[in-house]
């Protein structure tokens, strides 16, 4: 083999050994592995919300990352389940009038599932309060009109 061809051959072998380089100096697969490793750290710490984000990042750069695919599905299911559990606990506190503890549970439900509409609605009591006052004002106005009628 000629010297020039030998150099080219070595370069290509190096590229193959290190993966397909991108502008970031890492192949998508390598970057995917990094995100997966971070995800596993979060999982080990019990932070499933952050772990899910890292698995999604892994899939962004490497859609074929099998571990990330499987973990994404599993964690999403687990988070929905946790959200529902905390929501139900929150409802029990709410019914007992223990609003502080209920709020904590509804917030936890929403952290696990940001689209948990019932938990979000329970956190905002404005509408109920307003309805109560509306009835009071109507009562006063009705009483006032009745007085006018009598006069």
């Amino acid at each position: 083999m000629r010297p020039m061809a030998r150099i080219l051959y070595s370069v290509l072998l190096l590229v193959l050994a290190t993966g397909c380089s991108t502008l970031g100096g890492k192949s998508p697969a390598q970057l995917g592995e990094e995100y997966t490793a971070k995800a596993q750290q979060y999982e080990a710490q019990g932070d499933l919300v952050e772990a899910l984000e890292q698995y999604k990042l892994a899939l962004t750069v490497d859609p074929e990352n099998q571990l990330a695919k499987e973990k994404k599905t599993t964690i999403e299911e687990k988070l929905y389940q946790l959200a529902e559990e905390h929501y139900q606990i929150g409802l029990r506190f709410y019914k007992k009038g223990q609003y502080g503890q209920a709020r904590k549970e509804f917030l936890t439900a929403l952290r696990y599932d940001p689209e948990h509409a019932e938990a979000k609605d329970k956190l905002t009591t404005t509408k109920t309060e307003i309805e109560q006052v509306k009835r009071y004002i109507e009562t006063v106005q009705e009483a006032s009109e009745a007085e006018d009628g009598e006069g």
């Binding site: 397909c20 192949s27 998508p28 999604k56 899939l59 962004t60 750069v61 859609p63 074929e64």
Partner: peptide, 27 residues
């Protein structure tokens, strides 16, 4: 090398290999 490094067009929208996109993120 060329074919193994070619991104999957359905997921990775940018052919210059500087962008990777999913429904959640761009890297």
């Amino acid at each position: 090398v060329f074919f193994s490094c070619t991104p999957i067009p359905a997921v990775i929208e940018y052919p210059d290999k500087t962008h990777f996109r999913s429904e959640d993120f761009i890297v």
